[in-house]
Design a protein around this nucleic acid. Structure first.
Length: 432
RNA sequence: GGAGGGAUGGCUGAGUGGUCGAAAGCACCGGUCUUGAAAACCGGCGACCUGAAAGGGUCCGGGGGUUCGAAUCCCUCUCCCUCCGCCA
């Protein structure tokens, strides 16, 4: 949520921010109209309440003294009616204002490149080189089938299209990567490991900004009014929902979670294989920081995510998303994309975002400043990183001419010493 | 799922329909004392909205009601605890 005071005091900045995102700027004016109406009514009702409070106190005293208070009570009854009328009006306006406000996205940071579509995203840097393969690379689907790592046909039979089913060394590779990434963030980057719920309430979803805009992209359980999380960001960020954090900042959390997305409207493109699925897994990082430090923390977060890819020696690039491609709640965002030779394309495996106080306002996450006041924290999150695209990149980049796949060194202990994935001719592949 | 009990400030915990935003303790901040620290003592210490300010208003789990006036009475929802049942 944007601070209504900020809209009130510098409407031009907000208007510009909305326009940069390709939205109509005049939304600001309808918000301002409601806001000023609200404050006018508030002053009316509050001055009546002030009078009621004083007179009610007097009534108490006069009754004790034995005075006749019948007439005063009658007057106060009338004032009470006027107050409830005004309060109702205020409540209506506040509801209307709130309903509008939850649809307003965050304002892009000034360093965000302006653009009208994803082509305007800026490449910040690229790391690692795509190995020149002396043979025609297979894609991960062909590789996985030959190696017996997964089985999409059987997955479809039990769950419909778009669900991964990993088997044998495929399942183990997934688990190895999760363990490897969590260990790295905990041991080297100073995050606290968390194992959160995978279902969250609509309040939590609103807090991080998934609702109301992304309602259609989420799985919902109507019986219980719960949603399956589309990202670990939701439970991790909501851990401090409606709290004044008294412990020192920053707080850094990491978690493995499954993620669920309906991908409504995404049918057709990339629906084969592991690239776009309804259920996937992710190691997520979330930070709660002091506002003045949040852009430094964003750089560190990005490096924490990049470390995973550097350790695995995978070629990647970092993009600074332009104003048009920025997600709803983000003020600034870096995407990390892996080069996948079998796709002949880049695949997004991480978004590292600074939400500034946008989520903190929605979720009521505050901290204690040095002078004892409360203020909203800044929240950040980034994937560190997303599976199973990491598996795709690993298979496609590390494939060898005979169709086997080399396991990167740091992962070998997590694979119980297995250095190369080889075809066994069996499905499911027998594990060594 | 059934029965009973509870929800008060960062924490513990008093609270009679009016003088309660709320005792007390802890924690925290400032000061005195001390070479320094601890202890002791003194003082301060909730959040939010509104207002240029002075000030005003709201909040005792959420929502609704009774009343001139509600933390306190009534209804309802949620959550927590105990016991029983079921269960990985």
């Amino acid at each position: 949520m944007i601070d209504i005071k900020k809209i009130r005091n510098s409407p031009d900045i907000i208007r510009e921010g909305l326009i940069a995102r390709g939205l109509p700027g005049n939304t600001v004016d309808s918000l301002l109209t409601l806001d000023s109406r609200r404050r006018t009514l508030l002053q009316d009702t509050e001055s009546l309440k002030s009078r009621r409070n004083t007179v009610s106190k007097e009534i108490g005293q006069r009754r004790k003294a034995g005075d006749d208070i019948g007439e005063t009570q009658r007057q106060m009854r009338e004032i009470g009616d006027r107050i409830s009328g005004l309060d109702r009006e205020v409540a209506e306006i506040e509801k209307e204002l709130h309903e509008k406000m939850v649809w307003i996205p965050n304002i892009p940071h000034r360093s965000v490149p302006r653009g009208s579509n994803e082509k305007d995203n800026e490449v910040v840097h690229a790391v690692g080189e795509s190995k020149e393969l002396s043979f025609d690379p297979l894609d991960h689907i062909a590789l996985g089938e030959r190696l017996g790592l997964f089985d999409f046909g059987r997955a479809t039979r039990m769950s419909g299209s778009g669900f991964p089913l990993l088997i044998g060394q495929g399942a183990k590779l997934q688990r190895a990567l999760i363990g490897f990434m969590l260990d790295m963030h905990v041991r080297q980057h100073g995050y606290t490991e968390v194992w959160p719920p995978a279902l969250c309430t609509s309040e939590a979803m609103t807090g991080t900004g998934q609702l109301p805009k992304l309602e259609e992209d989420m799985y919902r359980l109507p019986e219980d009014d719960l949603y399956l999380i589309p990202t670990g960001e939701v439970p991790l960020t909501n851990m401090y929902r409606e709290e004044i954090i008294e412990q020192p900042l920053p707080i850094q959390l990491t978690a493995y979670t499954p993620c669920f997305r309906r991908e409504a409207g995404a049918a057709g493109r990339n629906t084969r294989g592991l690239i776009r699925v309804h259920q996937f897994d992710k190691v997520e990082m979330v930070k709660f920081v002091e506002p003045s430090t949040s852009y430094d923390e964003l750089q560190k977060l990005l490096v924490d995510a990049e470390d995973v890819l550097r350790a695995l020696e995978l070629p990647y690039r970092v993009l600074s998303l332009c104003t048009a491609d920025l997600s709803f709640a983000a003020a600034k965002c870096f995407d990390i994309e892996l080069w996948c030779p079998g796709q002949d394309d880049w695949l997004e495996v991480s978004s590292c975002s600074n939400f500034e106080d946008f989520q903190a306002r929605r979720a009521g996450i505050r901290y204690r400043t040095k002078n004892g006041k409360t203020d909203y924290v800044h929240t950040l999150n980034g994937s560190g990183v997303a599976l199973p695209r990491l598996v795709v990149a690993l298979l496609e980049n590390n494939q060898q001419a005979d169709g086997s796949v080399r396991i990167p060194d740091p992962l070998i202990p997590y694979m119980d010493g297995c250095e190369i994935l080889r075809a066994t001719g069996e499905t499911p592949a027998k594990q060594p």
